[in-house]
């Protein structure tokens, strides 16, 4: 059943096994091509599997998905494809959030605007408590080292 498939999909996602989750997501979509949860899961799987071009294509051409405000996912695809100015434009539509700032910092770093990246990371490091504090400190250090 779809419920059983979603149970497995959720578990595989928690374990980071997106290559195993994707076929199950596609099975759900065969039963119901308009299932929004499955469509969103498909995008996540594609992004985790480094298929940013396909993810972006799906997000912008699928009738249901293109209606959704998936700013962060769309901007992330553009960032990975090195379309950095477009990625910033996409994020300007998003509600401000630490997630948006984190991607902005990465974009500015890639643009070699290290001052701006460092400035965003300083604020994030001060205000964010999650599993990525060490990685964020490393990114801040990288931005500071490159800006000096």
């Amino acid at each position: 059943t779809v419920e059983q498939l979603f149970t497995q999909i959720r578990k595989l996602g928690q374990d980071g096994l997106h290559h195993k989750a994707l076929p199950l997501v596609i099975e759900v979509l065969k039963k119901n091509p308009k299932d929004l949860d499955a469509l969103k899961c498909k995008i996540v799987c594609l992004l985790k599997l480094d298929k940013c071009k396909e993810a972006y294509h799906t997000m912008t051409t699928d009738k249901e998905l293109s209606k959704l405000p998936m700013w962060h996912e769309r901007a992330y695809c553009l960032y990975r494809q090195n379309k950095l100015e477009e990625a910033i434009t996409e994020l300007n539509n998003a509600e401000p959030s630490p997630k948006v700032d984190e991607l902005l910092a990465q974009i500015y770093y890639k643009l070699e605007n290290y001052e701006e990246a460092a400035s965003i990371y300083k604020t994030l490091v001060k205000n964010t408590m999650d599993s990525y504090t060490n990685e964020r400190e490393t990114n801040l250090a990288a931005a500071l080292a490159s800006s000096s």
Binding site: V2, E3, F6, T7, I9, R10, G13, D37, K40, C41, V44, L47, K48, H72, E73, Y76, Y79, K99, E102, L103, Q106, Y109, S131, Y132, E135, R136, T138, N139, A141, A142, A145, S146
Partner: peptide, 21 residues
């Protein structure tokens, strides 16, 4: 080149499937 992590990829996650399972 200094180490730099793609933290944003970690922020991309499945929607809450709690109602679907």
């Amino acid at each position: 080149k200094p180490t730099f992590f793609d933290i944003s990829l970690n922020h991309i996650e499945f929607p809450d499937l709690g109602e679907r399972v």
